[in-house]
Design a binder for these strands. Sequence first.
DNA 1: CCCACTACCTTGCAATACAAAGTACTGATA
DNA 2: TATCAGTACTTTGTATTGCAAGGTAGTGGG
Lengths: 128, 128
Amino acid sequence: MEINSNINNTDLDLNAENIKAQMRKGVLEYCILSILRKGDSYVSPLIAELKAAKMIVVEGTLYPLLTRQKNQGLLSYRWEESPSGPPRKYYSLTEKGKKALEFMDDAWKDVIKTVELIKTGIEINEEE
Amino acid sequence: MEINSNINNTDLDLNAENIKAQMRKGVLEYCILSILRKGDSYVSPLIAELKAAKMIVVEGTLYPLLTRQKNQGLLSYRWEESPSGPPRKYYSLTEKGKKALEFMDDAWKDVIKTVELIKTGIEINEEE
DNA sequence: CCCACTACCTTGCAATACAAAGTACTGATA
DNA sequence: TATCAGTACTTTGTATTGCAAGGTAGTGGG
C-alpha cells in the first residue's frame, strides 16, 4: 500500500517543540532528583526552577512523578505549614534516592557519550 | 492514606536499566537521523549500530518510528535487492529531515546545557 | 518440499506527559 | 459570616510511544 506524503504534513516548526519536549522527557526524573539534592522543596518552586531552565513541566506531570519516585523509595515527604495558604508537601531525597541519583549521574554521562559515538560513527565488530 | 514503602520495593538494580532506557528514549529519533546522515541504511544495520552503542532498540520500536519519520517527511525510502533474502527498504534523509536534524543538534546541546544548569543551580528572577 | 535465514510489518499492552478539572485551606473584604 | 482570590495538592481522560510477541514473505540449501 502506497502512503501519500500528505498524510501528515506537519511543518518542521510544529515539530520543533515536540522534539525538544521528547529529549527533555528522558531526563525529567533526573532533574527532579538533582534539584532536591540541593535542598528539600515542594511542587511550586520545583516547577518554577524547571521552567526557569526551560525544562517546562506542568502540575499534572509533576505530582504523579513525585508520587512514583516516593513509592520507589527515592523520596520521602513531610508536611509544613505555609505562611499563607494550605500546607506544603516538602519532598527530600532518601538514602536510596541519593544512590539512584549517583547512578543517574553516570547514566546521563553514558547517554551523552553514546549520542556522540553515534554521531561520529562506530565500527561494528560483529557481536560484542 | 499512608503509603507503605513496600508497595513498590523494586531494588535500585531493577530500576537501573529502566533509568537508562528512559534517558535513551528521548534521543532515539535524533540517533536514527544521525546514523542516516552518515549514509542510507535499512532496519537491521540500524539496530546493529544502535545496539553497538548500547542504545538498545528492537524491531517493534524501530519500524513504527521510521514510518512516523517518513510520514513527517523527514525520511524517504527505496527498495533494493538483497544478495540473499527479501528486498531491503533503504531509508534516507530528505531535505526536511536534514533541517530537522540540524534543529535537533541544537536542541540536544540545549538539553545538555539545561541539565548542567539544573545540577549546579539557577537563580530565578521572577519571569523570564 | 521443507527449513533456516533474512527482512518487513502489526497488534496489544504499559508507561507516562499533558490538559483540564476538582478539592481544600488561608486570609482579606464586604 | 459569606464570598472571593490565592495557593497547593490531586485526579481523570487522552495521546504518544517503546516493547514483547507474533505474523507475513522472499531466497537458497538439503
